[in-house]
């Protein structure tokens, strides 16, 4: 067991500095995030935890460039997101980020393979995307279900299509917002195992929001939010890769 050997000089993959996000609700200002600062290093897995309404999704949306902070800055892969116009942000997301949502929102009229490809079609041709999409569906264990529509897939399988879709285009950063929120216990375990394998194999930087401490156990570092503020940050020991012979 050891802590991740992180190079302290490495430029963070994500840097959130003094970010506040306020909304107007019924004539009053509600602060979903207040003065949040954090950084995530390359190849690090960070779990954002906290109860419902603590600001996890707001924070992930800001890192994903799906929302903009009221004040403070968000820098992702060296890019200050506030300097990008909407169209540039969309292109940046497509090029550099993979996003997994609690509900993968697959298009019902398309097959699993087509769903993986569709999101990137504006930036690449289908014949270029398809070989990689097939490989990714194999990697997430859906090699035999590529031509199934979402209705013929289980909840866990649909979420795995969502992960394959997020990884198409080889993003360096994967953001996952409550990815196991809609899954049963067995599917949750399978999905965690899959994320663990993918982030190691692809050297991904992974930011995962979850209210479940057992899901957060996958992370090198856990950041806990409450009421829109960071209330705790701690490193976790990470299990070394083990040898199957240990089981004999």
């Amino acid at each position: 067991m050891e802590l991740l050997d992180l190079n302290a000089r490495a430029e963070p993959a994500v840097m959130v500095s003094a970010v506040t996000r306020a909304f107007q609700s019924g004539g009053e200002e509600v602060r979903a995030l207040e003065g949040v600062s954090l950084s995530v290093l390359p190849a690090e897995t960070v779990a954002i935890t906290g109860p419902s309404g603590s600001g996890k999704t707001t924070l992930l949306n800001l890192i994903a460039g799906l929302d903009r902070p009221t004040s403070g800055t968000v820098t992702v892969l060296g890019q200050d997101l506030s300097s990008l116009k909407e169209r540039e942000l969309t292109a940046f997301r497509a090029r550099s980020l993979g996003i997994v949502f609690q509900d993968p929102h697959l298009l019902p009229g398309l097959t699993a393979l087509e769903n993986v490809i569709a999101a990137r079609l504006p930036w690449a041709r289908r014949r270029v995307l398809e070989p990689d999409a097939r490989k990714l569906l194999m990697a997430v264990g859906l090699g035999s279900r590529m031509n199934h529509p979402p209705a013929r897939l289980s909840g866990g399988e649909r979420q795995r299509v969502g992960i394959a879709r997020a990884l198409l285009g080889q993003p360096r950063l994967l953001l996952a917002d409550e990815p196991t929120g809609n899954l049963d216990i067995g599917s949750t375990e399978e999905l965690i195992a899959l994320l663990d394998e993918l982030r190691n194999d692809l050297k991904l930087t992974l930011v995962i929001s979850t209210h479940d401490p057992a899901v957060a156990a996958i992370a090198h570092r856990v950041i806990r939010l409450r009421g829109g503020r960071v209330v705790e940050e701690r490193s976790q020991r990470v299990a070394e890769r083990i040898d199957a012979r240990e089981l004999e």
Binding site: D196, P213, A217, R234, Q236, R237, A239, R241, I242, E246
Partner: peptide
């Protein structure tokens, strides 16, 4: 919590 989390990861790898 750290020890249990690491153990959980290890068990998942074994699994």
């Amino acid at each position: 919590a750290s020890e249990r989390s690491a153990r959980l990861q290890r068990l998942r790898q074994m699994r």
